[in-house]
Write a protein that binds this DNA or RNA. Sequence first.
RNA 1: GCGCCCGUAGCUCAGUAGGAUAGAGCAGCGGUUUCCUAAACCGUUGGCCGGAGGUUCGAAUCCUCUCGGGCGUACCA
Length: 576
Amino acid sequence: MLIHFKKQLAEKIKQAIISLAKSGKLNLEVDRLPEVVIEIPANSSFGEFSTPVALQLAKAAQNNPRKIAEMILAELFREVSPFWEDFTALEIEAGRMVFKPADFLAGPGFINFTMKDKFWATMVKIINEQGAGYGSSDYGQKRKVMVEFVSANPTGPLHIGHGRSAAYGDSLARVLRLAGFDVWREYYINDAGRQMGLLGKSLHARYLQELGVEASLPAEGYRGRYLVEIAKQLKNEQGDKYRNEAADSEFFINYAVEMILAGIRSDLAEFKVEFDHWFSEKRELHDTNKVEECLEYLKSRKAVYQKDGAAWLKTGEWEEQDRVVVNSQGVPTYLAGDIAYHKNKYERGFETLIDIWGHDHHGYQPRMKAMVEALGYSPDSLHLIVYQLVSLLRDGAPVKMSTRAGEFITLKEVLDEVGSDAVRYFFNMRGPDSQMEFDLELAKKQSSDNPVFYVQYAHARICSIFRNMAEYGFNEADIPTAKVDLLTTEGERDLIKKLAAFPELVIKCAKSDEPHHLTTYLQEMAAIFHSFYKHHRIMDRENQELSYARLKLMKALKIVIHNGLDLLGVTAPERM
RNA sequence: GCGCCCGUAGCUCAGUAGGAUAGAGCAGCGGUUUCCUAAACCGUUGGCCGGAGGUUCGAAUCCUCUCGGGCGUACCA
C-alpha cells in the first residue's frame, strides 16, 4: 500500500543519487546522504508525491538544485521498469523512457510525481480487502508496551480530569495496538499509605452518623457526599454490626476502597475504557516486600544512600537535589513505591512504559527519569505524558470546581449529560499540552457545530445509501467486481488520497503518542465526503458501472471512518 | 529563584520527524432543498503564527534572549 510505495520510491531516488555520486556526476560522499523524504503536498498542483532532496543536496554538491533534480530524474528513468507504469508524464518509446523534466520539476528544485487513476483505484480495492484490519501495520514489531493511565486514588469518584486521562490513554492504547505493538493497559491503585487511613476514618465517622451517633470527620478527612452514600449502604447491609469497630480498623478502609473502585470501574466501563490489570500497590508491592527488595537492589547499585537518618535516591543530572525514598521514621515514601512499581513493569518484559499523568504531577518527571536510569534502563523507554487541566463551560461560563471542598464535577455526571461518544471525541480533539475548555452545550448539540455528529453523520449517510441500494436497482453482490478505474473526478481522487493516508496516520499517532490527530483527520475526511455527496450522484440508474465504482468507494470510506472512530472509542451509527 | 507547559483569525483550537500560498469549527455576512438523510453543501470577511535575534536554500516548526499566561518546586500521595 501507500507506505510501502513511498518507501520504494524513496529507495529508487536514493539509488539514483548514489549512482550519480559514484560516477562522479555529482560531487557527493555516498555515506553522508540525507534521507530521501517523500511528502504528499497539500496542493496537488505540486504533484501527489514530492521530494525536496535536490534542495538538500545543493550545498554539498555545490550545484544548482534544479540542475541536480534534472540529473536525478535522468538517472531515475534511465531504465524501463514496471514500477513506473503508474506514473503520469512518462512514456515508453522504443524500449526507452521518454519524459520532459519540466513535468517533474517545480519551484527551486522540488521533484514532483503524479499518479495515474489506476494507481489510486487500486487503493480502493486494498481498503475493501483489508476491511476492519485497514490501518494496521507492523510498525510496533510486537514490542511490549504498557500504558498506565487514570490510576486515580481510590478515595473518591472519577472527576472530569480523569476522563481526559481515560479517553487519551485508551485511544492511545488502541492506536498502538493497530500499529503493531503488544499493548497492556494498567491502572495503579494507590491503596496503601496515609490517605487510606484517612479514608477509613472518614467512612467510620459517616457510618456512625448514619447510626445516629454523633461523630465528626477527621481534620483532613474526605467530605464528599459519596462517602455518605457508602455509609448508608454499609448500614443497610450490616446494620450496626461495626458500631464498636475501631476508627482505624482495616474494615472501613477495605469497605470504602472496594465500593469506590466498583464505582470507578463502572464509570470507566460506561466510557468504554477497559484495563488488562488493576495493580494493587498494597497487595502487589507492599505485602510481597517488593518495595524493600527494590530499595536493597538500588543500594547495591549505589543509587540509594543513607543520610540524616533517611534513604535518598541519587537523581544525578536530572535534578538539583536527591529525593527521599525512606523517611527518618523508616517509612518508604510514595516515590519508593513508584520505583518498585516501575521496576516491576520492566521485569514483566515491557520495553516501553507510557505513564499518563495530570498536570499537577509534572514536577515529578525528572526524578522518574532518574529512577529509570538508577534501575539500569534507558530513560527514553519511559514516556511521561502530562495532560493539562480541563475546565468545563456551561452557557459560556466556567463551571466552578474545588476538589478540596469535595465539590467537583464527576465523569459520571458529564457522561450522563452529554454521552460517552461526545466526551471521548472532545477529549481527543486536543493535544495533551493544551489546557482545554470542554463546552457542555456544544457537546450536546446535534448539528455540524458539533464535530462528533459531523463525522458520525457521514457514516450514517453512507449506511443510508447502502440501505437504499435495492430500491435503486443495485446489488450488494456486484460491488466487489466494480470497475474502480472509473473513479476519475477530482472529488473522488481527493477522497481516495485521504483514505490511502490512514495507515500512515495511525503510525504517526503511535510514534508521537498522540491519538488526537485522528479527530482532525476524520473531520477532514467527513468534509470531503459531504461535499462529494452533495455534488455527485452515487447511485445513478443511467450509469450502472460508475455507480458500482462509487459504491465500492463508499464502502472503503465507511471502513475508514468506522476504523477511525473505533480507535477513539466512539460509535459509528448506522442511522441518525 | 529554578524547572515544565502554553502563546497561531473576534472565540475554541489543529498544524511543530523544517518545505512550496498558515488551516478547521464557532461567531459575522450572503446563498443552496422537484435530487441516495439540509445533522448537509457553496461563497465571503478575518492573521506581521507574542516580540527580537540566530541556524538554513527554506522556520509557526530548531537554537538563544525577551514579554505575557498556567503549573510545579515535601522526609504528602
